[in-house]
């Protein structure tokens, strides 16, 4: 399983990637939407974990672009805001919204559910 983590909070995604690696999950990190798109052009991911509010391309815009590149990609939105942002992201029922701080076990569980059921 391979995950793409995208957040402009660099320490957050770096630490999350390390913790996922310790649990046997490969995760690439990108700090901007542009960087994430470059990575997605040369690699295939099962799940993209996106921050909604980022400088430049927002998480919502990034999702659309990534979806065009990889229609089978699953998405999880992670945000510092509450559930209110669900409407801001495109309201799609397929997407999962998690609030920071994350529970890593719940994140992994969610990733596994997404990849098994879709």
């Amino acid at each position: 399983m391979k995950i793409l983590l995208v957040d402009d909070e660099q320490k957050f995604v770096n630490m999350l990637a390390k913790r996922l690696a310790l649990r046997g999950i490969e995760a690439d990190v990108a700090y901007t939407g542009e960087e994430a798109l470059k990575k997605a052009e040369s690699a295939v991911y099962d799940v993209a974990v996106l921050d909604i509010k980022m400088p430049g391309i927002s998480g919502t815009q990034l999702k659309r672009k990534l979806f065009t590149l990889h229609p089978s990609l699953n998405f999880i939105f992670v945000t510092g805001h509450g559930a209110v942002e669900k409407s801001e992201a495109d309201g799609s029922e397929k997407d999962i919204y998690l609030s920071k701080p994350l529970d890593i076990d719940f994140l992994i569980e969610t990733v596994q559910e997404l990849t098994q059921t879709r």
Binding site: E9, K11, M15, L16, R19, K53, G80, H81, K100, P101
Partner: peptide
């Protein structure tokens, strides 16, 4: 502000978890 504080807590939480 609450968004910023959540980001800070998220980093501390991940680091403590690590």
């Amino acid at each position: 502000i609450s968004h910023e504080l959540k980001n800070i807590l998220a980093i501390i939480s991940e680091t403590a978890g690590f």
